[in-house]
C-alpha cells in the first residue's frame, strides 16, 4: 500500500510502521532473569514461541534470550517442557 509518510501534506496523525520500539531497552524492568541450561535444552523453541516480548531468537538449533529487552516474565521458564530453564534473581533485586 502507499505509505502515508510519502504524502506529508495529507498526513493525518497516523503512526507508520517501520520505526521499531527496539531503542527502548526494557531489560531494566527485570528483577529475575531466565537462564537456559544448554545440557538440558532440546531446541524445541517453545520459549521462542511463547515469548510475549519477541526477545528470544533462534540461533542455529538453539534459542537465545536477548536480555536487553527481556522483562523477566518467566513464561518461558514455566513452559519449558525439558525443564531446561531457571529463573535467577538479578543482583540487587
Amino acid at each position: 500500500m502507499p505509505r502515508l509518510d510519502e504524502d506529508p501534506f495529507l498526513t493525518p496523525p497516523i503512526i507508520t510502521g517501520g520505526t521499531p520500539m527496539k531503542a527502548n531497552k526494557t531489560g531494566h524492568w527485570r528483577s529475575a532473569r531466565p537462564v537456559i541450561h544448554d545440557d538440558k535444552c532440546t531446541g524445541c523453541m517453545l520459549c521462542w514461541k511463547f515469548c510475549p516480548e519477541a526477545c528470544v531468537t533462534i540461533e542455529g538449533d538453539r534459542p537465545k534470550i536477548h536480555l536487553d529487552w527481556c522483562k523477566g516474565c518467566a513464561v518461558c521458564v514455566e513452559e519449558c517442557p525439558a525443564d531446561a530453564m531457571s529463573l535467577e534473581d538479578e543482583e540487587g533485586a
Binding site: 520500539m21 510475549p52 516480548e53 519477541a54 518467566a74 513464561v75
Partner: peptide
C-alpha cells in the same frame, strides 16, 4: 511483526 521494547506488562496475553 512485533518488536521487542514495547511497553506491555510482563507476561501480557494481549501482546502475545
Amino acid at each position: 511483526g512485533l518488536s521487542a521494547g514495547h511497553l506491555a506488562c510482563q507476561g501480557c496475553g494481549a501482546t502475545l
